[in-house]
Amino acid sequence: MDVLSDVVAVTRTGRPRSAHVRWHAPWAQEFASVPGSAGFQVILQGTCWLLPPSGEPLRLSAGDVVFLPHGSGYTLADGPRTPVTTPACGPADQVSYEAYASDSVDRSGDGGPATVVLCGAYRLDPSRTHPLLLTLPDLIHLPAQPVPRPGLLSAVHLLAAELEDPRLGTDAVVPALLDTLLLYILRIWFSEQPARGATTGWAAALNDPSVTAALHAIHRDPAAPWTVAELAAEARLSRASFARRFALLIGQPPLGYLTWWRMTTAARLLRASEEPLRSIAAQVGYTSEFAFAHAFKRAHGTAPGTYRRTATRRP
């Protein structure tokens, strides 16, 4: 898998939730802060305002996409001064995020202009959050204009159609489309960062062909006995130039990231499978089960067997 696909596969847990909602003015809906989650809003029709806890209100129009990767709270309303009169929308506890819901809702106000919104939420596991996601701002706004985004638009239209008119297979289609939408949002945001002046960090790394080549090599085959020289060859740079460039953009040396990714992958395998430890060790590059157990305990603070017994398994 490529880096971005791996990040989503490792970090997201449970089943995503989504809804197709039609509001009639006046309306104002508060969305509670939910740590360990990420949410999005797509404006399908009309206009509205996103009101963060602090900072300026953000006016949204049809086609705009807003993504909140850290579960920050906010209010969505027909106007910046409309009072909130309904309870905050959000799970009372983390367990409720395990329930998957696809819904189409009509919430009438006084018959004013309609705003149609596609909203959704993903549950993330803080224990395996990739550093790429930690660098994202609290709010990502992808306006419909002036840049056309046909792939994102297609995913939005497909998801909206499934939620508005559920049919055979909808329960399988919607989660796949939600993951697709998440990947499109992240892909677009990272691809646009060079134009915003990003020169370091993951935004710059994913737009650097040399560093990206090395990252793809690690993610494609974490079990390979990679050395800095071999990763430098993948990046088509000298060993010294590659090591400096990788550490500058990623924030840790190449082999440090390799070890972190191996241990993250091992934790996922321990949670999701019954494979013996020697098999998992081999899949992340360890020929010795003892060496693997030592590295895993150093990374996660507990032995692999104990981790497997105590970890909560999620799909």
Rank of each mutant, 00 (worst) to 15 (best):
I140Q: 08
A213Q: 04
R196M: 05
G109M: 10
P16W: 00
L186T: 02
S241C: 08
Q145R: 15
A266C: 10
S210E: 11
G39H: 06
A281Q: 08
L249M: 11
A233M: 09
P131R: 11
F40A: 06
S154F: 05
A235N: 07
A214N: 04
P276L: 12
R59C: 07
P194I: 03
L152D: 01
W202A: 01
P52F: 07
Q252Y: 03
P131A: 07
W260V: 07
A155W: 03
A144Q: 08
W260A: 15
T75F: 06
F242R: 07
R107K: 13
F190A: 02
R22A: 05
G79D: 14
E98K: 11
R278W: 11
S273P: 12
G36T: 07
R12C: 00
R308E: 03
D221P: 00
R59D: 05
L206Y: 00
S127R: 15
S102T: 10
A204H: 03
V284P: 06
G46N: 08
T170W: 00
A213T: 04
A282T: 10
Y286C: 08
V105P: 01
P80K: 09
A9H: 01
L177R: 01
A176M: 04
T259A: 15
P166T: 02
M1Y: 01
D2P: 02
T302C: 14
L258S: 07
T180F: 01
A247H: 10
V117L: 12
P225H: 06
R278N: 12
A233D: 15
P146Y: 06
W23K: 03
A232W: 08
R236W: 05
L50Q: 10
S61R: 14
L50E: 05
T82K: 12
T13V: 04
G63D: 03
R149T: 09
M263S: 10
P52L: 09
G55F: 03
W23L: 05
V105M: 14
S72I: 13
T75A: 15
G197L: 04
L183M: 01
L215P: 02
E192W: 02
R17H: 00
S210R: 10
S61N: 11
A233W: 09
W261I: 14
P315D: 15
L134Q: 13
L215V: 02
L134V: 04
S127H: 14
A223D: 09
Q94T: 13
L159D: 03
S61M: 08
P209Q: 06
D93E: 13
L206H: 01
T306D: 15
R314V: 10
R17G: 04
D125T: 06
L206D: 00
R123K: 12
A235G: 06
V65Y: 05
V65I: 05
V42T: 08
E289C: 07
S288F: 08
L44P: 04
A62R: 11
Y74L: 09
H70F: 04
L215K: 03
D138Q: 14
D64Q: 05
E30R: 15
T47R: 15
G285L: 09
I140C: 09
T302D: 12
S273H: 15
A291W: 07
A281Y: 07
S18I: 00
G63L: 06
A235L: 06
S191F: 01
